[in-house]
Amino acid sequence: MRELVYYVAVSLDGYIAGPGGEFDAFPVEGDHMAAQNERFSDAIPTVIADAMGIKRTGTMFDTVVMGWNTYAVGLPVGMTSPYQHLKQVVFSRTRTESDVPGEHPNLKVTDEDPVEVVRRLKSEPGQSIWLCGGGQLATQLAGEIDRLVLKRSPVLFGDGIPLFAPGTYQPSAFNEVSTTAFGSGVVISEYARRQLSQDPN
């Protein structure tokens, strides 16, 4: 079965973006970039990957799910289909596909229950599903997350959008798969959901 992977940059104080959704404080230069771009090339916006000459392998993700606010970050610069190489699912209770400029066959805006949608996606053949953000959607999908990949950056935001928004979900245990510290100060840690048979308690 396909995995739902929450792959995201996060500050030392637990924010994935500033109060207005800004994320320009995260370092985009340093020795961590080559490593993350090699493994997670599928998670780079299409136009940026093309401009940088980064080849997408298609072996990590073939689908991305995100909330409307995460999707809308690119609209002011004309990025109406940020991940054209992936199947894109945008969740919103108030927006529809009529709010998306242009026509994008591989982008769907839906008010369906995110859990039901993700469970349906998991049952289909394909690569992993990338949970792009934001914190509210991550909280809704907390029980469906199979893998966490956190790019912890050596910055403090003070306020903003948390990794998980306050909410109610069952406590979940994860096993550390790997942690790599880079000279840039960025630490990439990967965790897999602990299966019941692995839980010593």
Rank of each mutant, 00 (worst) to 15 (best):
F91C: 07
Y71K: 07
T59W: 00
D62N: 09
D113G: 11
L148V: 05
V115W: 09
L137H: 13
S98E: 15
T70Q: 02
W130D: 08
D111R: 09
Q136H: 13
V77Y: 12
V89P: 13
V90G: 04
G67D: 11
K55F: 01
Q127R: 15
S153V: 13
R120I: 01
L141Q: 12
D113K: 05
G102C: 11
L156P: 09
L137S: 12
S98K: 15
L150I: 12
N106T: 15
H104L: 01
L131T: 13
G126I: 03
T94K: 05
Q140W: 12
E103T: 14
V65G: 02
V115R: 15
T110H: 03
M60L: 04
V115D: 10
R152I: 10
S153K: 08
K87L: 03
T139E: 12
F157C: 11
T96C: 04
H104S: 04
Q88H: 05
R119P: 08
M60I: 01
Q88D: 09
K108D: 05
T94G: 05
K55Y: 06
A138T: 08
P125L: 02
C132W: 06
M66S: 05
Q127N: 13
H85C: 04
L121S: 10
Q127M: 08
L75M: 14
V109Y: 02
V155I: 15
V64Y: 09
L121P: 09
I129L: 13
L107I: 03
G133V: 08
N69H: 13
Y71C: 02
G78R: 12
F157G: 11
